[in-house]
Each structure stands twice: as C-alpha cells, then as structure tokens.
C-alpha cells in the first residue's frame, strides 16, 4: 500500500498580540494509506483543528510539509474536502443546492451535478429532504448534508473536524454508524478529528494519539477490532484504558 497523505514535520507557532509566541503543533509526522480511516485523537483544545486546516491548505504551517499523492500542498482544493465542526452549510441554499454547489463551481454540467448530488443525498439518507433549507434540518441531518457535499467532490482525502461534537449522544452514535456505512458504500480516505476516545476507537483503522499543547504525535495505534464494534467489548475497553493513559501520563 502506498501512502496517499504524508504529514512531514509540521510545526505551527502562533504569535500573540503582545509578541509572545505559542507553539500549538510540534514536529507532527504521520502517513495515511489509501482508503484508511484515520482518527486523530487528543485531549483539549490545542492544535488538532489547526492541523486539519493545514492539511486542507486553509492555514499556513510555520514549518514542515504536507504531501498529497506526493504533491506538496500549497492551497485549499477539492482533493481535500472538509466537513467542518459546525457544518457551515449555506443557509440561503436548499440541502440539494448545498451539495450541488461544490460541483457547480467547478463547471460540471447541470445534469451531471444534479444527478450526482441526488445520488449522494440518497447515500447519506436524506432522500425527500432535497428542497429543505438548513434551518429546517436537525443537527444530524445538517451534518449528513455536510458529508454529502464533501463526498461528491470525490476527494482524495476527506477531512472531518469533530463533525459530531455538537450532537446529542444518541444522534452521535447513529451518525458514527452512518459514517461507517457511507464509507463502506463508497471507499474514501478519511482523517477524522475527535477528542472523544470512544468515538476514536469505534471508527478508526488507526488512531493518531496527540499530546496536548504543543500537540505532537505520541503514538499511532492500529485498531484491529472488526466492525461493527462493541463499545463494551473487553478488548475495546482495554484499548480505551491504554490510550487514555497515554494522553494523561504527562499531567
């Protein structure tokens, strides 16, 4: 297997207004294989979103490189679609038009982007809600639109930034199953960020465990449990304990 995404020695230092600086990412290295589900797990508020934005090309790293298919990432592009934490659908467009937008802007014909958008809305389970405005959709449904919108750009890597963080526990479990179902229907490489260890263990092929502030990769753990995973399985709980200990050790 070849690595599709390569994070090479990324550092990010923020300069505060008073001139002092704060390192949020320190020598971050890892690689992602094609069609792999990678979860970047770490406690706290430090660095994970910044790392994702750097991979997406939305923020500039202080040093280091990101390679996608051996090509240096310099700016944002549809090969790295992002599902943002607070979704960010366009409120003035219907669910369908929100999904269509990502293809429309790149000059696909109307027939093409319409049928593709319908296909992906159906894939995420939103058939029948094409013409609803986001304001009429629940949090989980909005997140489904967000996933469909990212999916239909056919990205090399899907970047998901704590997409279910704002959902209630029940919907969150449901969406985790949905994400796995969607990924199995149409394979994608996914980098998924979370601060929830259970979510990480439930979804990941491999978990990149990050330390807190400045964030650096503590360990990359391969999760060999078969899907569907049981959150109360003894191996699941053992891994949970082990990974939690990794991030807490320092405190």
């Amino acid at each position: 297997m070849s690595s599709i995404l390569k994070i090479n020695n990324i550092n990010k230092i923020f300069i505060n207004n008073n001139g002092s600086d704060k390192a949020v990412l320190q020598n971050v290295n890892f690689e992602v294989e094609e069609n792999e589900f990678i979860v970047v797990f770490g406690p706290g508020q430090c660095g994970k979103t910044t790392l994702l934005n750097i991979i997406a090309g939305l923020e500039k790293q202080s040093s280091g490189q990101v390679f996608i298919k051996d090509k240096l990432v310099e700016k944002a592009g549809p090969d790295r679609a992002v599902v943002f934490q607070n979704i960010q659908l366009f409120p003035w467009l219907t669910a369908l038009k929100n999904v269509e937008y990502s293809m429309k802007i790149r000059g696909f014909s109307k027939e093409e982007y319409h049928s593709e958008a319908m296909k992906y809305l159906e894939l995420v389970g939103l058939k029948g809600f094409e013409n609803s405005y986001p304001i009429k959709l629940s949090g989980g449904m909005k997140q489904r639109v967000g996933i469909a919108r990212a999916y239909c750009t056919k990205p090399d890597v899907m970047l998901m930034d704590e997409p279910f963080g704002a959902l209630d526990a029940q919907t969150r479990y449901l969406m985790q199953d949905e994400v796995l179902r969607i990924c199995n229907t149409e394979k994608r490489t996914i980098v998924f960020i979370t601060n929830n260890i259970e979510e990480a263990l439930y979804l990941a092929d491999r978990i990149v465990v990050m330390s807190d502030c400045p964030s650096t990769v503590k360990e990359v753990v391969k999760i060999d449990l078969t899907h569907p995973r049981d959150r109360t399985d003894s191996e699941f709980l053992r891994l949970r304990k082990e990974i939690s200990a990794m991030v807490n050790r320092k405190r």
């Binding site: 997406a56 679609a81 992002v82 960010q88 790149r106």
Partner: peptide, 9 residues
C-alpha cells in the same frame, strides 16, 4: 464559509 467555497475551488 469562505473556506468552504475555497475548498471547492
């Protein structure tokens, strides 16, 4: 929202 549009090119 600007980022979203940038990602889509």
């Amino acid at each position: 929202k600007i980022w979203v549009a940038q990602i889509f090119g």
